[in-house]
């Protein structure tokens, strides 16, 4: 019995908790992508770099606050700096829209044109981030490191395996939950939220009903940029900030959005957790886990790892291809046109 509990705790510690945190970060990113897709009808390829941009400004503001001696105690200072980063990301997104995408909207260009234009935006944002903060790893988490540590859990439970929850992980899940609830309330309850959904559902009819497309587009960028910054900051607090890693997050984020049904916010959240759990579970080494569940004094040969962690992208990719081949509309019937 203790063995089973130990195995469970082990699994929670190395798969459950990290995947939950990672899934929350992906969900925030995927929500942005799916909203942009729903309203503007193209895959926004610069989303990873928008995340990096917002996070970078947040980091700079964090350093500034730290230099002034401001601190949030156990919570990371970055939370206080977040509004600066979000504002910068919103500004960047709105400028990109005004300078680039508005023109093609007026022309009623095909989605692929928007898509290529977003590659241009990606280059610019990427360059800005690399110039301002550099291409290297940055760590900016401060405050309390752990909600509780492995040792504390072991003493409390009497098990030989321990469970640790880092402050950043708890923060990620709580913050993501609050933001998601707020977003869904906004979309379901407010006039603007309904207008966004209506516009995404049926653009012509929304226009007939008097929805102002310029406002819908503006709101979409604002929300997506804020979500992107939050996702990026939480990811950076949880792991670390590196511009290139953020670009690479595009793949799991899009996999999540497409799995859930692109254009569907609910789908983006569900898809994000599925992608995150698959990724962590497939790349976790189950050796010790199996030892607890197997017979006494037995140890499996090898690590029992399905794929090495370097191949985690292939998980997103396989999910993506499986969805596209079997059910292109995704779990929640997204748009395919």
């Amino acid at each position: 019995m203790t063995d089973i509990l130990n195995a469970l705790v082990l699994f929670m510690n190395f798969v459950g908790v990290p995947a939950l945190a990672y899934g929350s970060q992906l969900a925030l990113g995927a929500l942005g992508v799916t909203l942009i897709f729903g309203v503007l009808r193209f895959a926004f390829f610069a989303h990873g770099d928008l995340m990096a941009f917002g996070t970078m400004v947040t980091i700079l503001a964090t350093w500034g606050l730290q230099a002034m001696g401001v601190s949030l105690g156990v919570l990371p200072t970055a939370l206080l700096a977040l509004p600066f980063g979000a504002a910068a990301a919103v500004l960047a997104a709105l400028s990109a829209d005004k300078a680039v995408f508005a023109f093609y909207r007026k022309q009623r260009a095909k989605p692929v044109v928007f898509f290529i234009a977003s590659v241009g935006v990606m280059f610019v944002l990427n360059g800005l981030v690399r110039i301002i903060i550099g291409p290297d790893d940055q760590r900016f988490a401060d405050g309390g490191r752990f909600l509780f540590k492995v040792g504390e859990f072991r003493d409390w439970s009497g098990l030989s395996e321990g469970l640790a929850i880092r402050t950043t992980q708890a923060l990620t899940v709580v913050a993501a939950l609050i933001v998601m609830v707020a977003l869904f309330r906004f979309l379901e309850r407010t006039k603007m939220g309904k207008a966004m959904r209506a516009y995404s559902d049926n653009e012509d009819l929304a226009l007939l009903s008097g929805v102002d497309p310029a406002r819908v587009v503006r709101w979409t960028w604002v929300i997506a940029a804020v979500l992107a910054t939050l996702a990026g900051v939480l990811y950076g607090l949880d792991k670390s900030f590196k511009p290139f890693t953020y670009f690479q997050l595009l793949l799991p984020i899009f996999a999540a959005a497409i799995l859930g049904g692109i254009g569907s916010p609910k789908g983006a959240v569900v898809g994000a957790y599925i992608v995150a759990f698959s990724e962590v579970m497939v790349t976790y080494a189950y050796r010790k886990f199996a030892m607890y569940l197997g017979p006494q004094d037995w140890a499996p040969e090898g690590l029992l790892q399905l794929l090495s962690t370097e191949y985690k992208f292939s998980v997103s990719f396989l999910i993506l291809v499986a969805v596209l081949v079997t059910r292109p509309t995704g779990l929640f019937k997204g748009k395919v046109f």
Binding site: A43, L251, F254, A255, F313, S316, L324
Partner: peptide
Amino acid sequence: KTALGLRSDYLAIATLGISEIVIAVLKN
């Protein structure tokens, strides 16, 4: 064989994924 016939931005994301996997294989 698997990915053609998807709408263009899906195909783009699929090919992006493949190229990341190729690099991961070559690196590891």
